[in-house]
């Protein structure tokens, strides 16, 4: 895995462990059981530009909402799932940029979220399982930042 994607993976682990209290396990894209349920997108612009997309399974988003909002499974609403998806991709992006290119300023868009009409491209994509779910989330990276190897 290239350096940029390793940093992205570190950011993903940090966000899900600290804010959603879930521990992810890398898995292959072949583990995806059908279409992802929801997609959250954030773009950034600065010395480099790019976009991060996160594709979530419904059970995983429900687990995230349960953990972050301290609610029971039956209390989780679509609004909560969407909010968690947006906040997750927002934190992943900000954390990723602060690690990959520290000290430089980037403008982040307000994250958008909706049904996953497409699937992540096979390259520059990280897939994870979590908590008995064979596939939970995939995160993809595109743009000029993808091949950045400069900062130490």
């Amino acid at each position: 895995m290239q350096r940029t994607m390793k940093i992205l993976e570190t950011s993903i682990f940090d966000v899900f462990e600290k804010m959603f209290f879930v521990y992810l396990e890398p898995c292959g894209a072949a583990s995806v059981p059908g279409d992802p349920y929801m997609k959250a997108t954030i773009a950034f612009d600065g010395p480099m530009n790019g976009e991060i997309n996160a594709y979530f399974s419904k059970p995983f988003l429900s687990l995230m909402a349960q953990n972050m909002l301290s609610v029971n499974r039956g209390e989780v609403t679509d609004e909560m799932r969407e909010d968690c998806a947006r906040e997750a991709v927002n934190m992943i992006c900000g954390h990723f940029l602060s690690l990959v290119d520290p000290g430089r300023q980037y403008e982040l868009t307000v994250p958008e979220c909706g049904p996953a009409a497409d699937t992540a491209s096979e390259d520059e994509r990280l897939d994870y399982a979590a908590d008995m779910m064979p596939w939970a989330v995939a995160v993809s990276l595109s743009g000029s930042v993808k091949n950045f190897e400069g900062a130490s």
């Binding site: 927002n90 954390h95 940029l97 602060s98």
Partner: peptide
């Protein structure tokens, strides 16, 4: 915030 940029 998610932004870790020192300037910000």
């Amino acid at each position: 915030t998610t932004e870790g940029n020192e300037e910000r």
